[in-house]
C-alpha cells in the first residue's frame, strides 16, 4: 500500500506529501480494474439488483402497418366525382340560362325604346348643330375672309357633296359650351 516517492525533495516536504497521499484512497491500478470496482469496495453494504424482463416476458413490438379505414373504393370515388360534376354542370346550365334570359329581356326593353330615343336625340342634335353654326358665324363676322365651316374659305373636304352632313368632332360640338359641360359629357361617355 505504501508508495515511495522517488523524487528527491526536502524532508519536511516529503512527509507532508506522504501523509496527504496515504490518507486518501488512491486507486491502485494493479489491483482495481476500473473505477466502479473501486467504488463498491469502498461502500459499506453493496446490494445488487439485476435488471430483468417482466414476468411473462416483454410484449411484442407493434411493427405491422395499420391502414386507415376505407369507406369508398377508388372506382367509387371516380364515379362519385363524375356524378357530382355532371349534377353541378346541369345546375350551372340552368342558372346560366336564367341569367342570359334576364339580360336578354333588359336588352329587348332597350331595343323597344331605341327608335323613340334616337328620334328625340336626332332632333336635339340637329338643333345644336344649327346653333353652333350660327354662333360661329356671329363670332367670326368681323374677321375678314372667314367663311363658316372652313379655314378662310378652305374646306375640310373637297370631294364630298357640299350638302352632306359630316358629324363634327366631340370637341368641336362642345366648343361654345362651358368647360364643365364638356368634361361632364366626356365622363358620361366613359361611364355609359
Amino acid at each position: 500500500m505504501h508508495r515511495v516517492l522517488q523524487i528527491p525533495l526536502p524532508s519536511f516536504f516529503v512527509s507532508c506529501l506522504s501523509s496527504v497521499r496515504f490518507e486518501g484512497h488512491q486507486p491502485n491500478h494493479q489491483f482495481y480494474q476500473n473505477k466502479k470496482d473501486y467504488f463498491w469496495r469502498m461502500s459499506s453494504s453493496p446490494s445488487y439488483k439485476q435488471d430483468l424482463p417482466p414476468p411473462g416476458g416483454y410484449s411484442s413490438i407493434p411493427f405491422k402497418r395499420v391502414p386507415a379505414k376505407t369507406f369508398f373504393s377508388g372506382w367509387a370515388l371516380i364515379g362519385g366525382y363524375l356524378g357530382m360534376t355532371a349534377g353541378a354542370a346541369y345546375l350551372y346550365f340552368l342558372n346560366c340560362k336564367s341569367v342570359k334570359a334576364t339580360e336578354l329581356e333588359m336588352k329587348c326593353a332597350s331595343f323597344a325604346l331605341y327608335p323613340m330615343l334616337l328620334a328625340e336625340r336626332d332632333r336635339a342634335y340637329l338643333k345644336q348643330l344649327r346653333k353652333n353654326r350660327d354662333e360661329e358665324t356671329e363670332l367670326m363676322k368681323n374677321v375678314e375672309g372667314w367663311k363658316t365651316g372652313t379655314w378662310y374659305g378652305e374646306p375640310i373636304f373637297y370631294t364630298k357633296d357640299p350638302d352632306s352632313l359630316t358629324d363634327p368632332m366631340y370637341a368641336e360640338f362642345y366648343v361654345h359650351c362651358s368647360y364643365k359641360d364638356f368634361m361632364t359629357r366626356g365622363g358620361m361617355m366613359l361611364m355609359s
Binding site: L126, K147, T166
Partner: peptide, 21 residues
C-alpha cells in the same frame, strides 16, 4: 366647325315637337 353654310340644316321650328316627357 366642319359644317358650312351649304349644308341644309332644318330650322328650329321644324325640329320642335312635343317630346315624350
Amino acid at each position: 366647325m366642319v359644317l358650312t353654310e351649304s349644308v341644309n340644316l332644318p330650322t328650329e321650328e321644324e325640329l320642335t315637337v312635343q317630346e315624350v316627357n
